[in-house]
Design a protein around this nucleic acid. Sequence first.
DNA 1: GATCCTCGAGTTCT
DNA 2: CTCGAGGATC
Length: 669
Amino acid sequence: MTHNQAKERIAALRLEVRHHDHLYYSKDRPEISDAEYDRLFRELVELETAYPDLLTSDSPTQRVGAPPIDELAKVPHEKPMLSLDSITDREDVQAFDTRMKRELETDHIVYTVEPKFDGLSVELVYDQGKFVRGSTRGDGRTGEEVTVNLRTIRALPLQLRHDSSPPAHLVVRGEVYMRLDEFQSLNRRMTERGEEAFANPRNAAAGSLRMLDSRVTASRPLTVTCYDIMAVSGPAPPSHWDELEALAGWSLPVPAHRRRCRSIEEVLAFHQSTDAMRESLPFEIDGIVVKVDRRDWQDQLGSKSRSPRWAIAYKFAPRKEITDIQDIVVSVGRTGTLTPLALLKPVEVGGVTISRATLHNADEVARKDVRVGDRVKVERAGDVIPAITERVPVPGEQRQDPFVMPDHCPVCGSAVAREGAYFYCTGQTVCVAQLKGAIEHFASKSALNIDGLGKKTVAQLVDRGLVRDLADLYRLTKEQLLTLEGFAERSATLLLASIERSKSVTLDRLLMGLGIRQVGQHIARVLAQRFGTLPQLMAATEAEFIQVHEIGPEISASLASFFREDRNRQVIARLVERGLSIAPPAQATSSSHALAGKTFVFTGGLSGYSRDEAKQLVEQHGGTVSSSVSKKTSYVVAGTDPGSKLDQAQKLGVTVLSEGEFTDLVKPA
DNA sequence: GATCCTCGAGTTCT
DNA sequence: CTCGAGGATC
């Protein structure tokens, strides 16, 4: 074969392989068998090996090849990658439609609807028709570069169709996901190799795409679908529908199941029919996306800080699964609260196996009328915490007796007292469940911050009688620690060092750590500010506590009774005796008053700092951080995967900031 | 007395 | 994150 013949054959083979990749992955309609495809692919590889000068990076054989790297590079997005407001109720969709009609001053809006793929979104950049760069969403402004990993996805064309006259520059938004069957076989392979299986397809896709070694990514069956043109040289398509058509024309995969709707009723119908076919789809979707079709209208409507006004995600009702209650047990918290807990026959809900769910309190158990042996519906509320939503009656079933709260603590046998909706164990001084809880709380980050003193260690210390109260922590010896399971020289030394370090503590942290009822981080700080030292605080009367702003009769009664208790006074005395040195509370060192009077609420994950660091930043500038959104909230900072607080903010018209905007505010350049 | 705003406490799985 | 309830405010 001459060089020229080889060149022609290679070009022909590449076209054919791309064509079949496209049919297989984007259209899901292969025309040739896998064996035939393999034959074409092998011939191409052989020719390219024989004529290395003809090998180019856009050849379908060149999807893998880059060596592993140390960490993913950060790249700024060409356009910020916004997220979508999400809603779950019909009425909210109607409200969206009404709002659009009002703002656009028209009665006829065409919406384009498509399934919302449950994967991770990526930005793809094509220059002169060639795939040059791709990145994950990151915080919306800056993502992680995953170009080499994306190249391994066969549904993703490395070269846009030549005959489609691709634009000189094109930035596309897409979603990378994994098909369910591929996900299952991947998990099977991983389990066989003794590796940890992925919890759900989305995690599998995210983990696979963010691999440092693209050869691993290549072995993971990822796929992609594209749904937005973020930037294009030349004229932009006049509508979202045309955008999708253009993408498909360039051979990019787009959602096959899409529709143009002439009314909001059609949108509702599409949502319903898509939900119905959800179980039979080979991949996971979590709702539909509704977009105002016309581009000029989109531009007119514009965007809020983190989401466009002209589109919403209309999610499906949270996934519910049916399972049986195997038992109802009662756990004892650090304050002695008895909490009923349903042990469930393990069931998969939204990709995670659920085996227990809290029933909160006795009233709740009664209201839902759930008993041991009952069949119930389980959902993951807020997509995280499992909750039993209702009982599913089984015809002819023989039900057990209703659940009753025990009248003695299941851990220590002390009497149980009732207060409002809650039941408490009265064995404050003898109950090991309470003691364990109290110690864990004392050691926790926002209290004494003793590193290395986790749940397991606490349980052992208490069970072996080494620790009977908080002060006992400060006379533990290395010899004692070495007798614990899992403790050797190193961990013992580290734990002793953390305990030593905790001896210098501020008054507010100590107050928080003591676990006085109704006294959390906030009240502890208020008290520390007002009284300054522990002796002064302990000398105060109930009447004096009430004087303090934010402290009413309940909290002051709780404080007074805590300090009246002999046992508590002794523990405090011993803590001081064993070297605890209590400093006045850290003054709010506000370096500026730029944010004085402003209230912040955080929702979702931040990438640049922890919640605590973010809180400190706000306070440094004289602002305050609160946990719930109200009319008085100045800003809601929405990170990744924001929760219901974002919806609340929008409802109340509170300004929403992205993490980037927040940073600009607290760290002016 | 009603209403709004916050805080505290408990919770699941990986 | 959600619930229940304490405290402030009108």
